Simulated assay, not measured.
Amino acid sequence: MGCTSTIRVALACDQDYLGRAAVTLCSVVLSADPSDVIQAHLMVEEGGQAVARVHVRALEEIALSRGIAFTCEVVTYSSELFEGLPTGFDPGAASIFSTAVYARLLLPRVVPATWRELLYLDCDILVRGSLSPLFLIDLGILPLAACVERYAPTVSAPQGIASWRELGLSPDLPYFNSGVQLMNLSVWREEFIGERAIEYAREMFGQLLHLDQEALNAVVAGRFARLDDIWNATSYWRKRERRATAAMDILDVAIIRHFTGPYKPWERAGLSVPHAEEYRYVESVLRLALGSAT
Protein backbone atom coordinates (compact mmCIF):
# COMPACT_ATOMS: atom_id res chain seq x y z
CA MET A 1 0.00 0.00 0.00
CA GLY A 2 1.19 3.54 -0.75
CA CYS A 3 1.67 6.30 1.76
CA THR A 4 -1.42 8.15 2.89
CA SER A 5 -1.80 11.92 2.88
CA THR A 6 -3.82 13.53 5.65
CA ILE A 7 -5.85 16.52 4.51
CA ARG A 8 -7.26 18.67 7.30
CA VAL A 9 -9.80 21.12 5.98
CA ALA A 10 -12.38 23.43 7.57
CA LEU A 11 -15.22 25.69 6.51
CA ALA A 12 -17.32 28.15 8.49
CA CYS A 13 -20.79 29.37 7.59
CA ASP A 14 -24.15 30.58 8.78
CA GLN A 15 -27.32 28.58 8.14
CA ASP A 16 -27.95 30.28 4.80
CA TYR A 17 -24.67 29.03 3.35
CA LEU A 18 -24.67 25.56 4.90
CA GLY A 19 -25.68 23.89 1.65
CA ARG A 20 -22.91 25.69 -0.24
CA ALA A 21 -20.34 24.56 2.34
CA ALA A 22 -21.51 20.98 1.85
CA VAL A 23 -21.04 21.23 -1.92
CA THR A 24 -17.49 22.48 -1.40
CA LEU A 25 -16.75 19.57 0.94
CA CYS A 26 -18.29 17.20 -1.59
CA SER A 27 -15.88 18.51 -4.23
CA VAL A 28 -12.99 17.82 -1.82
CA VAL A 29 -14.14 14.20 -1.55
CA LEU A 30 -14.81 13.70 -5.27
CA SER A 31 -11.40 15.08 -6.28
CA ALA A 32 -9.37 13.24 -3.64
CA ASP A 33 -6.73 10.65 -4.46
CA PRO A 34 -7.38 7.13 -3.11
CA SER A 35 -4.53 7.60 -0.61
CA ASP A 36 -5.97 10.84 0.82
CA VAL A 37 -7.37 10.79 4.35
CA ILE A 38 -9.74 13.74 4.77
CA GLN A 39 -10.39 15.12 8.24
CA ALA A 40 -12.88 17.98 8.05
CA HIS A 41 -14.44 20.46 10.43
CA LEU A 42 -17.65 22.28 9.59
CA MET A 43 -18.25 25.30 11.82
CA VAL A 44 -21.90 26.35 11.69
CA GLU A 45 -24.05 28.95 13.37
CA GLU A 46 -25.93 27.72 16.43
CA GLY A 47 -29.20 26.16 15.33
CA GLY A 48 -27.75 24.71 12.14
CA GLN A 49 -26.07 21.62 13.58
CA ALA A 50 -28.94 19.20 12.86
CA VAL A 51 -29.06 20.11 9.17
CA ALA A 52 -25.27 20.09 9.05
CA ARG A 53 -25.16 16.50 10.36
CA VAL A 54 -27.60 15.41 7.65
CA HIS A 55 -25.19 16.80 5.07
CA VAL A 56 -22.26 15.12 6.79
CA ARG A 57 -24.00 11.73 6.61
CA ALA A 58 -24.51 12.27 2.88
CA LEU A 59 -20.83 13.19 2.47
CA GLU A 60 -19.80 10.08 4.39
CA GLU A 61 -21.90 7.96 2.05
CA ILE A 62 -20.31 9.56 -1.01
CA ALA A 63 -16.81 9.03 0.40
CA LEU A 64 -17.53 5.40 1.31
CA SER A 65 -18.82 4.66 -2.19
CA ARG A 66 -15.54 5.93 -3.62
CA GLY A 67 -13.20 4.34 -1.12
CA ILE A 68 -12.12 7.67 0.38
CA ALA A 69 -11.39 7.95 4.10
CA PHE A 70 -13.49 10.89 5.31
CA THR A 71 -14.61 12.20 8.68
CA CYS A 72 -16.27 15.50 9.49
CA GLU A 73 -16.86 17.09 12.87
CA VAL A 74 -19.64 19.66 13.23
CA VAL A 75 -18.93 22.49 15.66
CA THR A 76 -21.00 25.57 16.36
CA TYR A 77 -20.45 29.25 17.01
CA SER A 78 -22.71 31.94 18.42
CA SER A 79 -23.34 35.00 16.30
CA GLU A 80 -23.34 36.98 19.56
CA LEU A 81 -19.54 36.66 19.56
CA PHE A 82 -19.38 39.03 16.61
CA GLU A 83 -21.98 41.61 17.57
CA GLY A 84 -20.90 45.12 16.67
CA LEU A 85 -18.59 44.01 13.87
CA PRO A 86 -19.05 45.50 10.38
CA THR A 87 -20.88 43.35 7.84
CA GLY A 88 -20.98 45.76 4.90
CA PHE A 89 -18.65 48.12 3.10
CA ASP A 90 -20.78 51.14 3.96
CA PRO A 91 -21.81 51.36 7.63
CA GLY A 92 -24.90 53.32 6.65
CA ALA A 93 -26.12 50.80 4.10
CA ALA A 94 -27.72 47.37 4.41
CA SER A 95 -25.38 44.52 5.35
CA ILE A 96 -23.85 42.61 2.45
CA PHE A 97 -22.48 39.76 4.55
CA SER A 98 -23.35 38.16 7.87
CA THR A 99 -21.09 38.00 10.91
CA ALA A 100 -20.28 34.44 9.77
CA VAL A 101 -17.34 35.90 7.84
CA TYR A 102 -15.55 36.29 11.17
CA ALA A 103 -16.21 32.75 12.41
CA ARG A 104 -13.30 31.29 10.47
CA LEU A 105 -10.92 33.42 12.51
CA LEU A 106 -11.69 31.20 15.49
CA LEU A 107 -11.10 27.86 13.74
CA PRO A 108 -7.61 27.35 15.26
CA ARG A 109 -9.30 27.35 18.70
CA VAL A 110 -11.85 24.62 17.89
CA VAL A 111 -9.84 22.04 15.93
CA PRO A 112 -7.69 19.50 17.82
CA ALA A 113 -4.66 21.02 19.55
CA THR A 114 -2.44 18.33 18.01
CA TRP A 115 -3.09 19.56 14.47
CA ARG A 116 -0.23 21.55 12.94
CA GLU A 117 -1.86 22.84 9.76
CA LEU A 118 -5.41 23.47 8.65
CA LEU A 119 -6.70 24.37 5.20
CA TYR A 120 -9.52 26.88 5.37
CA LEU A 121 -11.86 27.14 2.36
CA ASP A 122 -14.61 29.63 1.59
CA CYS A 123 -18.04 28.19 0.81
CA ASP A 124 -18.13 29.35 -2.83
CA ILE A 125 -15.32 27.04 -3.89
CA LEU A 126 -14.98 24.05 -6.20
CA VAL A 127 -12.03 21.73 -5.56
CA ARG A 128 -10.84 20.01 -8.76
CA GLY A 129 -7.87 17.94 -7.59
CA SER A 130 -6.18 16.45 -4.55
CA LEU A 131 -5.24 18.97 -1.87
CA SER A 132 -2.39 16.83 -0.54
CA PRO A 133 0.45 18.91 -2.13
CA LEU A 134 -0.47 21.83 0.10
CA PHE A 135 0.36 19.80 3.19
CA LEU A 136 3.95 19.34 2.03
CA ILE A 137 4.59 23.07 2.51
CA ASP A 138 6.83 23.98 5.44
CA LEU A 139 5.42 27.21 6.83
CA GLY A 140 8.15 27.62 9.43
CA ILE A 141 7.25 30.68 11.52
CA LEU A 142 4.82 32.15 8.98
CA PRO A 143 1.16 32.30 10.02
CA LEU A 144 -0.24 31.05 6.73
CA ALA A 145 0.08 30.37 3.02
CA ALA A 146 -2.29 32.02 0.54
CA CYS A 147 -2.57 33.48 -2.95
CA VAL A 148 -2.02 37.15 -3.61
CA GLU A 149 -5.29 39.01 -4.16
CA ARG A 150 -5.10 39.90 -7.85
CA TYR A 151 -7.50 42.82 -7.45
CA ALA A 152 -5.29 44.24 -4.68
CA PRO A 153 -1.79 42.75 -4.87
CA THR A 154 -0.33 45.07 -2.23
CA VAL A 155 -1.58 46.59 1.02
CA SER A 156 -1.49 50.07 -0.54
CA ALA A 157 -3.67 49.11 -3.53
CA PRO A 158 -7.05 50.89 -3.75
CA GLN A 159 -8.76 47.71 -2.50
CA GLY A 160 -6.01 46.84 0.00
CA ILE A 161 -5.73 48.08 3.59
CA ALA A 162 -7.30 51.50 4.06
CA SER A 163 -5.07 52.39 7.01
CA TRP A 164 -1.77 50.95 5.77
CA ARG A 165 0.04 54.25 6.39
CA GLU A 166 -1.24 54.56 9.95
CA LEU A 167 -0.15 50.99 10.61
CA GLY A 168 3.36 51.80 9.41
CA LEU A 169 3.25 49.16 6.66
CA SER A 170 5.48 49.27 3.62
CA PRO A 171 3.33 50.09 0.56
CA ASP A 172 4.66 47.12 -1.41
CA LEU A 173 3.81 44.49 1.19
CA PRO A 174 1.77 41.74 -0.50
CA TYR A 175 -1.93 41.39 0.27
CA PHE A 176 -3.65 37.99 0.10
CA ASN A 177 -7.09 36.63 -0.70
CA SER A 178 -8.29 34.97 2.50
CA GLY A 179 -10.74 32.56 0.86
CA VAL A 180 -8.09 29.82 0.77
CA GLN A 181 -5.61 29.70 3.63
CA LEU A 182 -3.21 27.04 4.83
CA MET A 183 -3.07 28.01 8.49
CA ASN A 184 -0.02 27.42 10.68
CA LEU A 185 -2.04 26.62 13.79
CA SER A 186 0.70 26.98 16.38
CA VAL A 187 1.51 30.50 15.15
CA TRP A 188 -2.17 31.45 15.06
CA ARG A 189 -2.59 30.31 18.64
CA GLU A 190 0.64 31.77 19.99
CA GLU A 191 0.17 35.15 18.30
CA PHE A 192 -3.64 35.32 18.72
CA ILE A 193 -3.97 36.02 15.00
CA GLY A 194 -7.73 35.51 14.80
CA GLU A 195 -8.52 37.41 17.98
CA ARG A 196 -6.38 40.35 16.91
CA ALA A 197 -8.09 40.45 13.51
CA ILE A 198 -11.51 40.55 15.17
CA GLU A 199 -10.39 43.36 17.45
CA TYR A 200 -8.96 45.26 14.47
CA ALA A 201 -12.28 44.95 12.62
CA ARG A 202 -14.10 46.25 15.67
CA GLU A 203 -11.76 49.24 16.02
CA MET A 204 -11.90 50.07 12.31
CA PHE A 205 -15.68 49.92 11.98
CA GLY A 206 -16.74 52.11 9.06
CA GLN A 207 -13.27 52.17 7.51
CA LEU A 208 -12.73 48.57 6.41
CA LEU A 209 -12.72 47.91 2.67
CA HIS A 210 -12.94 44.11 2.86
CA LEU A 211 -14.02 43.20 6.36
CA ASP A 212 -12.28 40.11 7.80
CA GLN A 213 -9.91 39.78 4.84
CA GLU A 214 -8.57 43.27 5.37
CA ALA A 215 -8.39 42.78 9.14
CA LEU A 216 -6.43 39.57 8.73
CA ASN A 217 -4.04 41.18 6.25
CA ALA A 218 -3.48 44.06 8.66
CA VAL A 219 -2.50 41.64 11.43
CA VAL A 220 -0.39 39.33 9.24
CA ALA A 221 1.32 42.33 7.57
CA GLY A 222 2.77 40.46 4.61
CA ARG A 223 4.04 37.47 6.61
CA PHE A 224 2.64 34.70 4.44
CA ALA A 225 3.94 32.09 2.02
CA ARG A 226 2.72 32.80 -1.48
CA LEU A 227 0.77 30.04 -3.22
CA ASP A 228 0.49 29.60 -6.96
CA ASP A 229 -2.79 30.89 -8.40
CA ILE A 230 -3.91 27.33 -9.19
CA TRP A 231 -4.74 27.06 -5.48
CA ASN A 232 -7.20 29.96 -5.55
CA ALA A 233 -8.29 30.78 -9.08
CA THR A 234 -10.71 33.62 -8.43
CA SER A 235 -13.11 35.35 -10.79
CA TYR A 236 -10.34 37.84 -11.58
CA TRP A 237 -9.23 35.32 -14.21
CA ARG A 238 -12.56 35.29 -16.05
CA LYS A 239 -11.27 37.96 -18.44
CA ARG A 240 -9.34 36.22 -21.17
CA GLU A 241 -6.80 39.04 -21.58
CA ARG A 242 -5.66 38.51 -17.99
CA ARG A 243 -4.81 34.89 -18.83
CA ALA A 244 -3.13 35.62 -22.16
CA THR A 245 0.34 36.32 -20.72
CA ALA A 246 0.44 33.20 -18.55
CA ALA A 247 2.29 30.07 -19.63
CA MET A 248 -0.92 28.08 -19.10
CA ASP A 249 -4.56 29.08 -18.86
CA ILE A 250 -5.00 29.34 -15.10
CA LEU A 251 -8.64 28.29 -15.32
CA ASP A 252 -7.71 25.11 -17.20
CA VAL A 253 -5.22 24.00 -14.57
CA ALA A 254 -6.86 25.41 -11.43
CA ILE A 255 -7.10 22.95 -8.56
CA ILE A 256 -9.21 25.29 -6.44
CA ARG A 257 -11.76 27.40 -8.30
CA HIS A 258 -13.06 30.27 -6.19
CA PHE A 259 -16.29 31.88 -7.44
CA THR A 260 -15.65 35.34 -6.04
CA GLY A 261 -17.92 38.23 -6.93
CA PRO A 262 -21.62 38.31 -7.71
CA TYR A 263 -21.78 35.50 -10.30
CA LYS A 264 -22.26 32.21 -8.44
CA PRO A 265 -22.65 28.90 -10.32
CA TRP A 266 -25.78 27.95 -8.36
CA GLU A 267 -27.61 31.10 -9.46
CA ARG A 268 -29.04 31.89 -12.89
CA ALA A 269 -26.66 34.82 -13.43
CA GLY A 270 -23.67 32.52 -12.91
CA LEU A 271 -24.67 29.55 -15.04
CA SER A 272 -22.14 30.41 -17.75
CA VAL A 273 -19.10 31.20 -15.59
CA PRO A 274 -16.09 28.90 -16.07
CA HIS A 275 -16.52 25.59 -14.19
CA ALA A 276 -20.19 26.21 -13.42
CA GLU A 277 -21.09 22.90 -15.07
CA GLU A 278 -18.53 21.06 -12.91
CA TYR A 279 -19.95 22.72 -9.82
CA ARG A 280 -23.50 21.70 -10.71
CA TYR A 281 -22.37 18.10 -11.22
CA VAL A 282 -20.92 18.03 -7.70
CA GLU A 283 -24.13 19.60 -6.43
CA SER A 284 -26.16 16.84 -8.11
CA VAL A 285 -24.04 14.10 -6.51
CA LEU A 286 -24.62 15.63 -3.09
CA ARG A 287 -28.34 16.08 -3.75
CA LEU A 288 -28.67 12.39 -4.67
CA ALA A 289 -26.84 11.33 -1.51
CA LEU A 290 -29.01 13.65 0.61
CA GLY A 291 -32.07 11.90 -0.76
CA SER A 292 -30.87 8.59 0.62
CA ALA A 293 -29.47 10.06 3.86
CA THR A 294 -32.75 11.56 5.03
Rank of each mutant, 00 (worst) to 15 (best):
L286S: 01
S130L: 03
G67F: 02
V282L: 05
A218D: 11
I7H: 05
G179R: 07
A69P: 00
P143Q: 14
P143T: 09
L42P: 04
A50K: 10
P91E: 14
A218H: 11
P158T: 12
E214R: 13
I68Y: 12
A145S: 13
E199M: 06
H275D: 14
V23I: 15
D249G: 07
I137W: 09
Y200G: 09
E46Q: 12
I256Y: 09
F135M: 09
A58Q: 00
L118Y: 15
L173C: 06
T114V: 09
E283C: 07
I193F: 01
P262T: 13
Q213D: 10
T24A: 13
V273C: 02
W115D: 15
Y17F: 13
H275P: 08
A21D: 02
Q49C: 08
L167G: 08
L139K: 04
N184I: 05
T154I: 03
A244N: 07
S79P: 09
A145V: 06
S292I: 05
F135H: 10
Q39H: 08
S272G: 05
T24K: 07
E277M: 08
P158N: 14
F176H: 13
S78F: 10
V23G: 02
P34C: 07
A146S: 15
A276D: 03
R53Q: 15
D14W: 06
T71G: 10
H210N: 12
D33H: 11
Y77R: 02
S156F: 08
E278R: 11
E83W: 01
A293E: 09
